[in-house]
Amino acid sequence: MSSTDQAVLQHGHRDDYGSRMGMWLFLFTELILFGGLFIIYAVYRYMHQQEFHMAAQELNTTIGLINTIALLTSSMTAAMSITAMQKGNIRFSKGLIWITIGFAFMFMVNKFFEWSAKINHGIFPGSKDLLAKPDGEILYFGLYYVMTGLHTFHVIIGVIFFLFILRQIKQGKIHSTRYVRLENSALYWHLVDLIWIFLFPLFYLIH
């Protein structure tokens, strides 16, 4: 143990390492939160394989693919913004964050059209068309709405995080030697990406 640990004890000392550790622990809770949904998905898909297969035909793979690419790319720009910050290139870093936010909006707009199309087709919770379908399809669409809905909610929170970061950069609270909040927001954003990496094949690619 070195003397810096003693410094940790000093009041008001900054511990970036500790902040990241706390953020990771928080990400685990998010992971398990979605994990609960994945367990439900796994069980119902196991019980109703054919019906999940049928229901998945209703989803548009292209939209899903575009959203996957959007999230992967935004994940990259979020990671790059840290590099830019570390190099002291604050303007570039801000630009990259804005690009990330842009992709997030693209994702949400896509999602909005996707959901509206479903709802126009009469597929939404409690609708007559949906209730007429077999059990497995009702469950599939129930899970589809809940899981992509919760995911989109996380996208929104991620955007709020980044807007907050931009504000703090402007205020000078985040700079090239102090950027753990940017790192943590990026971590959160990558988690959103990670979840989607699984959601995409599980909902869109059952052919």
């Binding site: 143990m1 070195s2 810096t4 390492y17 996957t68 790319t73 990259m76 990671a79 590099t83």
Partner: peptide, 26 residues
């Protein structure tokens, strides 16, 4: 548990490389 921060700067090029890989896997 290391006591001091070693900030790893990862070059943009590496990220682009990983990103291309991810797209390929998709």
């Amino acid at each position: 548990e290391h006591q001091h921060e070693e900030s790893h700067v990862i070059e943009y090029g590496n990220y682009i490389f990983i990103w291309l890989g991810l797209l390929a896997f998709t």
